[in-house]
Write a protein that binds this DNA or RNA. Sequence first.
DNA 1: AAGACGAAAGTGGTTGA
DNA 2: TCAACAACTTTCGTCTT
Length: 319
Amino acid sequence: MTNDDNWNEYVVDMETCTECNGQFLENYVGELECQSCGIIDGQALDTGKEWRVFSDGSGANQERTGMAPTWMLHDKGLTTDIDWRNRDHAGGRISGDFAKRLRRIRTQHKRTRIRNSTERNLVSALSELNRLASQMTLPQPIREEAAYIYRKSVEAKLVRGRSIEGVVAASLYAACRMRGNPRTLDEVGLHSRTGRKEIGRTFRAIRRELGLDVSPAQPEGYIPRFCGDLGLPANVEGRALLILRQVSDTSMMAGRGPTGIAAAAVYLSSRMGESKRTQREVSQAAGVTEVTIRNRYREICEALEIDPENPTVPEILLR
DNA sequence: AAGACGAAAGTGGTTGA
DNA sequence: TCAACAACTTTCGTCTT
């Protein structure tokens, strides 16, 4: 029996899932999540359509009121669209003078959607935002948050004297941290035309001027991504998070870079089980040096009284 | 040969006078 | 504005597996 095998017996003390008899385990945002079917706290998510039927109940009509407003479109998605096809409501062809008129209306409509230079800027900034977020594979809520921060920055005239790209990158960086899915400045800088330095400077300005409540990045936030990049199984990830939770009360965290701590926790967790990773592999996934991992590793082992040579799951982590 | 270790010097950012 | 400072990186020789 490996360490990895008996690990789960101690961590999981929750009931079993009513849907599939799988085990509930606390995920990193503190919800109870079924390990096999992913249901949160016994509540299955309804992935069905939200169409409501007001007419004959046959379900043939699919009424609703359009998509939810989004900060990702310059007009928040509140607009009317005119179909580009020359067809009437029944699908019949529209031709002749009326088709000509329709073409004219479409042109005018396009012009009214983008009214002034501010909106034009917003359009290009938001497309840059989307490009960046896509390259970094960021989820929709973070993009929304970033778009909102960017809008506020424009309102506060923070783009004056700064590049649009810089403000976009800084907004994204801030949104990632605020949503507990932190990225390093290096990472954002890698995908943006602006460098790490400028993004950092701009981020500080935005935070100060908008009074954003951005707490320091928590090492926990990096764990899922590092483990994913390293192809580590879920139990190693869960154990790394528990290690962090134990160590977070100690003084070793003070003043240390969160990425280094997270990297060391992943490295330690991987060494406790069968799927081991080298310092080099972890350092590349985490963007810190092996030396830093070694130092944090030593400190974590010291704090948790773990033998660095032959790390086993310590008593304090079992309950 | 690869991985781990640790010393020593260098770098970039923060802090406090 | 500048120097001190801590964290982190780079580099490199040595030891272990």
